[in-house]
């Protein structure tokens, strides 16, 4: 029974990974790509690791899979934040049809 639920979790995780990488191809600029791929790949990989935990139970590798889930959820948003701030301050423009950019206005006002 545990193995069937594990198969289902791994299947959901693979589907979300695929959608995240498709977003990396289709979306128009850096910030949108970062948003789609960070969300989808983080939850997809967490789902795969939870499937591994359901397969192994409370053994060494199962506990390590839980630790990996905690680690990814804590670190993936931090790296997305750092990359987006670095991209904005190095002068990467937003998409042409985007609505507003208050961050650039405030930085111009401050400088």
């Amino acid at each position: 029974m545990n193995e069937i639920i594990g198969y289902i979790f791994i299947g959901i995780g693979l589907a979300f990974d695929f959608f995240g990488c498709l977003g990396l191809i289709r979306l128009p600029d850096v910030y949108n790509r970062l948003q789609a791929s960070t969300k989808c790949v983080t939850l997809g990989t967490c789902s795969i690791l939870f499937g591994l935990f359901l397969f192994k139970g409370f053994t060494a590798s199962g506990i390590k899979a839980l630790l990996c889930i905690l680690f990814i959820i804590l670190t993936a948003p931090v790296s997305a934040h750092a990359l987006s701030r670095g991209a904005h301050s190095s002068g990467v423009k937003l998409w042409d049809k985007s609505v507003c950019d208050m961050y650039a206005e405030d930085k111009k006002y401050k400088a």
């Binding site: 790509r33 997809g44 990989t45 795969i48 690791l49 591994l52 590798s61």
Partner: peptide, 26 residues
């Protein structure tokens, strides 16, 4: 087109390899 795109793709590839390692264990 920009270096930031490449950095994003490298980051995502790193997380994907973690999933690869997890499946490989079963």
């Amino acid at each position: 087109p920009t270096p930031a795109d490449r950095a994003v793709a490298i980051d995502i590839l790193g997380i994907l390899i973690l999933g690869f390692c997890a499946i490989l264990g079963i």
